[in-house]
Structure formats: C-alpha cells, structure tokens
C-alpha cells in the first residue's frame, strides 16, 4: 500500500497523526510532514484510518 500526502492541502488538523501516530508525523507547527511511499503491511489499517480522517482530503492511499 502506498500513501501520498499533499502537504499543500494540509492545514494542520492533525487527525492523521491522532489516528495513525506510527504512520503520520507532524512538524513543530502541527502540520503533516511530507510522506510518499510504501506502508508496511502491519500499518496498513492505521494508515487508512489516518487518511480517512483528514477533513481536507490531503492524503491518498493507493
């Protein structure tokens, strides 16, 4: 599974990190750090929950 974060869309709701702290990291302002890559199998469910929680639809899971 691959996750891409469109950081231009991120406004710092930080819901991805709240639901999937092992997948999504935040910068010092509380905005998502860039991420674009494969997710280990054991973190797939978390990654999906975090992506689904984003009100801005800034995270794509494919």
């Amino acid at each position: 599974m691959k996750v891409t974060i469109d950081t231009a869309k991120c406004v710092g709701h930080a819901r991805c990190n709240a639901l999937a702290p092992d997948v999504y990291a935040l910068d010092d302002d509380g905005y998502a750090l860039p991420f674009d890559g494969e997710i280990p199998v054991e973190l797939e469910a978390q990654a999906r929950d975090g992506a689904d929680a984003c009100p801005e639809r800034a995270i794509t899971v494919s």
Binding site: G12, A14, N17, A18, L26, D28, D29, G30, Y31
Partner: peptide
C-alpha cells in the same frame, strides 16, 4: 499564522 501555530501544536 506561523507565529501562532507553534504555540498551539499538538505536542
């Protein structure tokens, strides 16, 4: 916003 955000970030 950048001046404020770090004072209200989750951590």
């Amino acid at each position: 916003r950048r001046a404020l955000s770090p004072h209200f970030a989750p951590n």
